[in-house]
């Protein structure tokens, strides 16, 4: 199977470097941006209750949400409960570092490694989010004042839980790493197209030869 050649623009080293540095920047920025959120609206809360998950903390109307969840025996939501909030910033930083190193060495295998790490982290993130949603909706206290059927809120989109209409969404903290992944993928594509890191002298020689028309 032959790989479709990357556009010449992408093959320029400076462009690859720039893209990888931008990817690193996006990953660093993502540490400070919300990953995911959920807004709950009911008749009593027409302005909505918000839970917003950042890579390092959870914010929003958490006290109120916990107070309401207590009635159905849901675990309280608080930062220290989530190991993810300690792992994620480090993981984002590590990925950013991979990209920065990649920008210097510009090796296809390194890019592949970076991309794999990003995919792995993304996979872990989605799994963990799915798991947490399941966990909080299913591991309900047996002694709760109210007994409801266990539930798993959807990761994205609308749902109804008891009197609340909920809406879940991904935010910039997720989008930026996704874009970063795309950039690394693009660089990898270009790198795979040339097989290996272009030899600087050879590249120069080639360009010189191109500038001087061949003598017959």
């Amino acid at each position: 199977m032959r790989l479709l050649p990357a556009p010449p623009m992408l093959q320029r080293p400076v462009v690859q470097r720039a893209l990888l540095l931008v990817a690193a920047g996006l990953l660093v920025a993502a540490v400070f941006l919300p990953l995911w959120g959920m807004t709950l609206v009911s008749v009593q809360y027409p302005e909505g209750l918000r839970m917003v998950v950042y890579p390092t903390y959870i914010t929003g109307d958490i006290t109120e949400i916990n107070l309401l969840n207590k009635a159905i025996g849901m675990k309280p939501i608080f930062n220290d409960y989530f190991l993810e909030l300690k792992v994620l910033p480090v993981a984002f930083a590590a990925l950013a570092l991979l990209c920065v190193v990649g920008a210097f060495i510009r090796r296809a295998w390194w890019s592949l490694l970076s991309l794999s790490a990003m995919v792995a982290l993304g996979g872990f993130g989605l799994w963990s989010m799915r798991h947490r949603l399941w966990q909080f909706g299913n591991e309900l206290s047996a002694t709760a004042p109210m007994t409801i059927d266990p539930f798993t809120p959807p990761m994205i989109g609308s749902n109804q839980i008891a009197q609340f209409a909920t809406y879940s969404y991904f935010s910039w903290g997720t989008t930026l790493p996704l874009i970063a992944g795309g950039l690394v993928l693009a660089v990898l594509w270009a790198q795979l197209g040339t097989g290996r890191r272009p030899n600087r002298q050879r590249a120069r020689a080639k360009s010189v030869s191109e500038l001087q028309p061949a003598r017959s």
Partner: peptide
Amino acid sequence: RGVAAANARRTPAGSLD
């Protein structure tokens, strides 16, 4: 205690209240 912990704890970057 559970909810207490959640309500009492404050993190520097973004509080839980």
